[in-house]
Computed example of a mutant assay.
Amino acid sequence: MEQLLDEFRSTMDIPWSIWSARLVGTVVLCGLIGFEREVDKRQAGIRTHILVGLASALYCIVMQHLVVSDEFATDRVRTDPIRVVEAVTQGVAFLAAGLVVFHQGNVRGLKTGATMWLSAAIGLACGLGLWGLAVTTTIIAIVIIVLFRKIEQKAGTHVPGHKNAGEKEA
């Protein structure tokens, strides 16, 4: 029983307040991007973007723990932190690619796929404690998405929801 209790008492080198802040920050920042997708009535909205970012941040925090852990500080085990970034990038790219479809001569889901990929990158930045980078990227992304939507609306090329460009509303 004591071993089981010890399992739950184990600590990380990163204080819980720091990793908690990183996870909560990820939820907020990725939630902002997901909210924009939700407002535009896209298939991947606030929850999806939060979960993608949250998973990315979690992988970073786990990786940071593994890199400094005595358990893995042997000659037999080599750690390479960049592999986490590569794995997250590949995994999210796979998810995002599933959203992109070619339908009746139009590509759909590309921007949503790109924002999911961006949410993963923001999650990685939060997970690594790179707050300035994460916040600045989120602000720039939202400005780009909102500004260009307005430009597209004025030009008549933006069609909200799942309709294809050129379709009339019923």
Rank of each mutant, 00 (worst) to 15 (best):
G166L: 01
H162L: 03
A155W: 09
N164F: 13
I145V: 14
G161F: 01
I151A: 12
V159G: 02
A155V: 10
A165F: 09
K163H: 10
V146F: 12
H158N: 02
K163N: 11
G156Y: 04
H158G: 01
K154R: 12
K163F: 11
K154M: 07
G166R: 01
I151D: 06
G166N: 01
G166C: 00
I145N: 14
A141I: 09
A155N: 13
G166I: 02
A141T: 14
K163C: 12
I144L: 10
I145T: 15
Q153H: 10
G156H: 03
V143L: 06
Q153T: 13
Q153I: 11
K154D: 06
H162R: 02
N164D: 09
I151W: 06
V146L: 11
P160T: 03
K163P: 06
K163I: 08
I145G: 06
E167V: 00
I151F: 11
I145C: 11
H162C: 01
L147H: 12
A141D: 11
Q153R: 13
K150M: 07
R149M: 08
V143P: 03
H162Y: 02
R149Q: 08
F148D: 11
A141G: 13
A155E: 07
V146A: 15
T157D: 09
K168R: 08
K168F: 05
V159K: 04
V143D: 02
K150T: 05
H162M: 02
E167T: 00
I140M: 15
I142G: 12
H158M: 01
V143C: 05
E169F: 07
K154H: 07
A165C: 04
K150V: 05
V146R: 13
K163S: 14
E167S: 01
G166F: 02
G166D: 01
L147Y: 11
A165D: 05
L147W: 12
I142Y: 13
H162S: 04
H162T: 03
R149C: 05
N164H: 09
K168A: 10
H158P: 00
K168H: 07
A165L: 09
E169T: 10
E169Y: 08
G156L: 03
G161H: 00
F148M: 12
A165Y: 07
I145K: 08
G156M: 04
K154A: 09
I144F: 10
H162W: 00
A165E: 07
A165V: 08
V146Q: 15
I144S: 10
I145S: 10
G166M: 01
F148T: 13
T157Q: 08
T157M: 11
K150D: 05
H158A: 03
V159D: 02
H162Q: 04
K150L: 08
I144R: 06
V159T: 06
F148S: 15
G166W: 00
